[in-house]
């Protein structure tokens, strides 16, 4: 679930922790939607505290990604753990999402255009 939401410059940084599964997905999806709609098109989702994620959790990330892309914004993922990385690669979402080891690296990347 969403643990913290803070704003650094004009970037929304959302930290998710614990389990992100079907039972939590509707609330997490709505929370992220509200943040995207109230934001300035720059979102970093920090997953370092996520112990477990399933396909419903992935759909929450996809939903936020689609929403921010429709607004010509950008969403980056940070704090990717081994298990989350494995699942993102298995589902090939790693080809779509921009991923960084740390939130600091994601903040730095947000200042530069995405890699082609």
């Amino acid at each position: 679930m969403i643990q913290t939401h803070q704003k650094e410059n004009n970037i929304d940084i959302v930290k998710i922790s614990g389990r992100l599964v079907a039972a939590d997905a509707p609330e997490a999806r709505e929370n992220l939607k509200a943040i995207v709609e109230g934001g300035e098109g720059k979102l970093i989702v920090d997953l370092i505290g996520v112990q477990f994620i399933d396909s419903s959790g992935l759909s929450v990330l996809i939903s936020a990604f689609k929403l921010i892309r429709a607004r010509e914004g950008r969403m980056l993922l940070s704090g990717i753990t081994k298990n989350v990385q494995t699942l993102l690669e298995l589902t090939r979402l790693s080809e779509i999402f921009e991923m960084f080891a740390t939130t600091e690296a994601a903040i730095e990347a947000m200042g530069h255009p995405p890699k082609a």
Binding site: D54, I62, K66, T91, I96
Partner: peptide
């Protein structure tokens, strides 16, 4: 099979189980 390009929010559960 989920196609990452179409960003469908469903269908990945069975794909994961099959894998």
């Amino acid at each position: 099979c989920p196609d990452p390009e179409d960003l469908c929010e469903r269908g990945r559960g069975i794909f994961i189980i099959r894998h």
